[in-house]
């Protein structure tokens, strides 16, 4: 599974924004207007999708789309 592609689908589902607006460098808060509840929802969907667990202290560091992609890819290795 391509992590970036799956993450984009999740963000589209939560925020209802066009997929092509979701860039790898996008910051959740500033660029995607995601609030803390949106981010929790994203984490839950990611965990289900990839069958992983993202601990709270790691979750707090995920500020951009790239952060998440890198984190999940490392986790899946």
């Amino acid at each position: 599974m391509n992590v970036f592609e799956e993450l984009k689908k999740i963000i589209v589902e939560i925020k209802d924004i066009p997929e092509d607006e979701i860039q790898l460098e996008a910051k959740f808060a500033e660029d995607l207007e995601a609030d803390s509840l949106d981010i929790v929802e994203m984490l839950m969907l990611l965990e289900e999708k990839f069958d992983i667990q993202i601990p709270e202290e790691e979750a707090a560091k995920l500020k951009t789309v790239k952060n998440v992609v890198d984190y999940v890819e490392a986790k899946l290795q």
Binding site: L37, E41, L43, M44
Partner: peptide, 13 residues
């Protein structure tokens, strides 16, 4: 909690 996702996450924790 003010959302279902946060409720689920925190109950799991």
């Amino acid at each position: 909690v003010a959302s279902v996702a946060l409720a689920r996450r925190l109950s799991r924790l």
